[in-house]
Design a protein around this nucleic acid. Structure first.
Lengths: 136, 136
DNA sequence: ATAATAAATGCCTGAATGGGCATATGAGTA
DNA sequence: TACTCATATGCCCATTCAGGCATTTATTAT
């Protein structure tokens, strides 16, 4: 029971819910810096929240050199499946900003991998474009 | 987004999750004293937690004289439906105590309504029986 | 009117929480 | 070696939270 309450607690913070939402929408693993840029929040903040999500058993990390990718852990019975379906059903007029930023951020990948760090020049230019075109 | 985080926060406490679990399992409205007896927790504690669940939009109350019944609010898109399915899938070897107590407590209803209050003599006798038969 | 009872609330305390800032870790690179 | 960069962590502060206890509110029964 505590285990399930812990999962809900992990989702009870807006920032953490936004992170999980991104992972649910994208379906595959995301690099920390991609999450940071997509949510437009400080790196230390994302890092701490990822730690809590990991503690709750919702995500796992995969280190690749300097880079760290996070992905959902969907196993263990039906519970998480329904939970992620619930999160997937959150109307995107609320989450759209994050998802649009992520979509743009993913254009910076090479061969399906993240190759630019936090708040890179390329990313700042893209952000400016997005704002100009009212995408975020 | 905050609205959804608030819902998760409401479920992030073990006692509140147990209350919602009972309502999900039973499917119909429950009287406050039935919840109190089923969870075997102080009345003020249940009352406060019900208030938070109500604030999050998960339950609604229906007053009938001295008695108050609570039930789930399941409407509003797919979100809560999946959420309640997730909760319904929590293994009952964890929640069984609550559910067995509720099952027994419901025997005290007359015409489908709760007619005995908190920690009544009848309930205490039932509890003793349940313990003797290792049902809880 | 008074008592009894179902449910809600106010106050207190210790513990946990999230954000901000600075700093540390640890891996690649010049 | 020294440096850069991606990520993690330690410390501080203000706020929130859950539980316990006493009390109140509201409705029914005597």
């Amino acid at each position: 029971m505590d285990k399930f309450a812990l999962i809900f607690k992990a989702l009870s913070d807006k920032t953490r819910l936004r992170i999980i939402n991104l992972l649910v929408q994208f379906g595959k693993e995301l690099c920390v810096c991609e999450i940071v840029d997509s949510l437009d929040e400080p790196q230390y903040k994302i890092s701490k929240h990822l730690k809590e999500l990991k503690f709750a058993g919702l995500v796992e990390e995969k280190k690749e050199g300097k880079w760290v990718n996070y992905s959902l852990i969907a196993s263990e019975g039906q519970f998480k499946k329904f939970l992620f379906k619930a999160i997937a059903s959150i109307p995107k007029d609320i989450t759209g900003g994050d998802e649009n930023r992520l979509k743009a951020r993913l254009f910076l990948r090479k061969n399906g991998e993240c190759v630019v760090g936090l708040e890179s020049k390329q990313w700042k230019m893209m952000l400016k474009e997005l704002k100009k075109e009212r995408m975020i």
